[in-house]
């Protein structure tokens, strides 16, 4: 079996990803505790941790924006219709038949068309909405200050909806990591930076049983 090994995820990108994972986990756990769904840390601790992790998240987001534009990696997140249909067909039927992935990752094409749409949605819609409503939550408490917004109910609802979307994203995202050439390949790539992919034409059925000899 021949493998193509390519360096996809830079050190910053991996740091960004795993830090963001931990922050999203912390934000979710504390957020839903504040929402009144359960008790883990205690309300006050949750509030303080939620605010603090929100700040870390925003700092990290700034760094990542800087990184995306200096490294031109933002290109990865621009949605495309190219091969979108094939990608949908792959996840809805091809994957069950062991068909090969319709798209292949390169440094400037890491994300398949479906991922591009999802991540663009996450980065352009969900995260900014969470950040803006979150800042309002922290600093724009009361209607008279400085303009009358008649309370934060709408911002709060948007923030709650965003939270549910993030949880749904995390569930699907975690599952999708298992759809690489092997169940753990994508996670390993996000750890080492290197993604190993069978050379073109190698059927999935075979690769699944391969043990990593490298």
């Amino acid at each position: 079996m021949k493998y193509k090994k390519q360096y996809l995820y830079s050190k910053f990108e991996r740091f960004w990803h795993w830090t963001q994972m931990l922050l999203v986990l912390l934000l979710t756990l504390t957020g839903f505790e504040i929402h009144g769904n359960y008790e883990i840390f205690g309300f006050e601790t949750s509030v303080r941790l939620h605010s603090a992790s929100a700040w870390s998240f925003m700092g990290l987001a700034l760094l990542s924006i800087f990184w995306m534009f200096t490294s031109k990696q933002y290109i990865n997140f621009i949605p495309t219709k190219n091969k979108l249909k094939e990608q949908v067909q792959y996840y809805t039927s091809g994957i069950f038949k062991g068909m090969p992935h319709p798209t292949h990752k390169t440094l400037f094409n890491k994300l398949n068309p479906l991922q591009r749409i999802t991540y663009a949605g996450l980065l352009i819609l969900i995260f900014p909405v969470q950040i803006i409503t979150g800042i309002a939550y922290m600093y724009y408490h009361y209607p008279q200050n400085p303009i009358d917004a008649e309370g934060l109910t709408l911002a709060v609802y948007a923030h709650t909806l965003g939270a549910f979307m993030v949880v749904a994203f995390v569930i699907v995202h975690m599952y999708m990591t298992t759809t690489g050439y092997s169940v753990s390949a994508n996670v390993k790539a996000m750890i080492s930076g290197y993604e190993k992919e069978p050379e073109e034409g190698t059927a999935k059925e075979e690769t699944k049983t391969q043990t990593d000899k490298h």
Binding site: R14, F15, T19, L49, A52, S53, L60
Partner: peptide, 28 residues
């Protein structure tokens, strides 16, 4: 070296960020 680098960017630095977040977050 790459493994050490990976260990730092995947484990050490994220853990440090979380530690600092929790540490300063809980300061009262």
């Amino acid at each position: 070296l790459e493994k050490i680098a990976s260990f730092i960017v995947v484990i050490i630095l994220p853990a440090l960020v979380i530690y600092l977040t929790v540490h300063f977050g809980l300061k009262r």
